[in-house]
Structures are given as structure tokens and as C-alpha cells.
């Protein structure tokens, strides 16, 4: 079942078109990546999805019904711009946000304790928010998004500013939630994070969807024309006619093949002068797919 359906939504601010006739669907039990460079319209799209702003045209369907505010307690939203009350105690803050999402105070308190324990910040629960490190504040914000057990979880750049250990912890938590049947929308300009986590994506640029679909299906549309070779010996094979471009390191090269070229030809040439430890034909990264589709880099 589709928990979210955006149908041709558009939004214009004064003269700037933020979102242009965008459509997408998010299924329950799936992780969905909303990708695009900064300013592509990701946050504007999310805001319309949960009624912070209304689209100028097009329609939003949540949980199979036309958008209605009464469904908002079923949504958890972690905005890109994190915001917590600095002077408020962590527990009070979580209880307040839980109550806003329809929990009663006792329920909110119990769950806040459970979550803080799970994310290893139980010690901080009686502290004021301003006394916490940035990473800890991020976790509190993360918990506040999940406290009311939303069916649809929307996270705008959830890992920005987190160290690798906490990023791992949060990723695992998100995967668990996905397996428990929640739909997760995950918006980022960091393509590498999405590749591992998302089942399907929508790549937007200039407010328009430039690429969307299942991750596997999308990648299979592009030929595997990248080769990584670990070797010992002469690297003259990089000048073979099938090679379009290469990056050479000591005992390691990354090669992009010409369109229609056969990687086996390269393997044969390499074997003649070098000892091959690894020869891997890899699929293009999302970043490369983006570049191919849009004609420039994500951060350009």
C-alpha cells in the first residue's frame, strides 16, 4: 500500500519555482530516498507532504486519503534544520513533543526513557538541551521523531553532523523500523548513504523529478562499465582501446570503459603483463547516474 502519493504537485515562491509537477509514491515497509542537490526542492516537497505549506496545484494523499491534518500524528518528521528548546530539560522536551503528537504524558515519559536507553543517552535525560553535544542533540531530535510510533517517518538529512559510530547506530535503527513495516522517507544530497539504505529513490533537480524508481531497477538501466583492478606488475593495459578514462594508484586502478566495450578484452590484456589479484566489474554509483542524467555533479 502507498502511504504517500504526491500527484503533480507544484509550488512557486514569488518568481522561484520550488517544485514543478512532482509525483512520487512511498510504500509501507520501504525506505525511500529523495535525492537532489541543495536547493532542488526536497524540503519544499516534504513540507507540502505534511501540510506545513500547501501546494499551488496537484494533490497529496496520505495513508490512502486526501491530505488531512488529523493524520499528522501518524507521521514523524525530522527537519533538516534541527530545532530544540535550548533551556528545556531533555525529558520535558521529549514529553512535550510526544504530547503534541497525541501521546499522554505518562506514555510519552515511558517511551522517552526506553528510547534514550536504546540510543545510549539515558544519562542526559535530566540535562538541559544546551548542555548536550551536537551529536547528542541530534539523537534527542531523532527520538522525538519516533516517540509516537509513526507509520511514516520523514527524515531530512538525518546523518548530517553525526560521527560514524552514531551514524551506524541510527542506520540500524532505521532498518529495524523499516522491517517493522514503517515507511521511511529519507532526503539527502549524500548519494552514497542512499545507495546502501534505500529501496527506491526519486532524484530531483530544479523542482522536477529527473529519475525515479526502484534502486535495483534504476541501476540495471545503466551498463556495468566500471572496472576496479588490484594488480602487481606493468599497468600498460590502461591504454587499451576499451578504456575511456582511468585513475591509476599504486597497484590499483579504477577504469571507465567505452560504451559497448567488453570488459573481458581488458582482462585478457591485463593478464599478459601483470598479476591480477582482483578484477571487479561494478555498477555505476548513484552519483554517476545523477551526473549522466543531469549533466553535472550533485554539488556543482
Amino acid at each position: 500500500m502507498n502511504l504517500v502519493e504526491l500527484n503533480q504537485i507544484s509550488k512557486t515562491y514569488d518568481t522561484k519555482v520550488a517544485v514543478d509537477a512532482l509525483s512520487l509514491q512511498i510504500e509501507a515497509g520501504k525506505m525511500f530516498g529523495l535525492l537532489g542537490p541543495n536547493g532542488a526542492g526536497k524540503t519544499s516537497t516534504i513540507r507540502m507532504m505534511i501540510g506545513i505549506t500547501l501546494p499551488d496545484s496537484g494533490s497529496v494523499t496520505l495513508f490512502g486519503q486526501p491530505f488531512s491534518r488529523k493524520d499528522l500524528p501518524r507521521v514523524g518528521y525530522l527537519p533538516e534544520e534541527r530545532g530544540l528548546y535550548k533551556k528545556m530539560k531533555v525529558i520535558d522536551q521529549l514529553v512535550f513533543l510526544g504530547q503534541l503528537h497525541g501521546l499522554d504524558a505518562t506514555q510519552a515519559k515511558t517511551r522517552a526513557h526506553q528510547w534514550c536507553e536504546r540510543l545510549q543517552i539515558l544519562d542526559a535525560i535530566e540535562l538541559k538541551t544546551e548542555e548536550l553535544s551536537k551529536g547528542m542533540q541530534q539523537k534527542i531530535q531523532f527520538i522525538s521523531t519516533l516517540l509516537h510510533e509513526p507509520e511514516l517517518i520523514i527524515m531530512d538529512e538525518p546523518f548530517s553532523g553525526l560521527d560514524p559510530v552514531n551514524t551506524q547506530l541510527l542506520q540500524e535503527t532505521l532498518l529495524e523500523l523499516k522491517n517493522a513495516g514503517k515507511a521511511i522517507l529519507f532526503s539527502t544530497h549524500r548519494m552514497d548513504q542512499v545507495e546502501k539504505l534505500c529501496d527506491s529513490i526519486c532524484l530531483i533537480d530544479g523542482g522536477k523529478a529527473v529519475l525515479s524508481g526502484g534502486m535495483r531497477e534504476l541501476k540495471s538501466r545503466y551498463p556495468r562499465n566500471h572496472v576496479v583492478i588490484d594488480f602487481e606488475g606493468d599497468n600498460s593495459f590502461v591504454r587499451h582501446p576499451v578504456v575511456a578514462e582511468y585513475k591509476a594508484f599504486a597497484g590499483h586502478v579504477e577504469i571507465r570503459l567505452r560504451d559497448g566495450a567488453d570488459a573481458q578484452d581488458l582482462l585478457r590484456a591485463a593478464l599478459q603483463n601483470a598479476k591480477i589479484y582482483k578484477f571487479e566489474l561494478i555498477e555505476p554509483s548513484l552519483e554517476e547516474i545523477f551526473i549522466r542524467t543531469v549533466g553535472r555533479r550533485v554539488d556543482a
Partner: peptide, 8 residues
């Protein structure tokens, strides 16, 4: 930036 959280 608490607003955006509340507005949700």
C-alpha cells in the same frame, strides 16, 4: 529552528 518541528 524549533518551529519546523512544531509545525509538523
Amino acid at each position: 529552528r524549533v518551529f519546523e518541528v512544531l509545525l509538523a
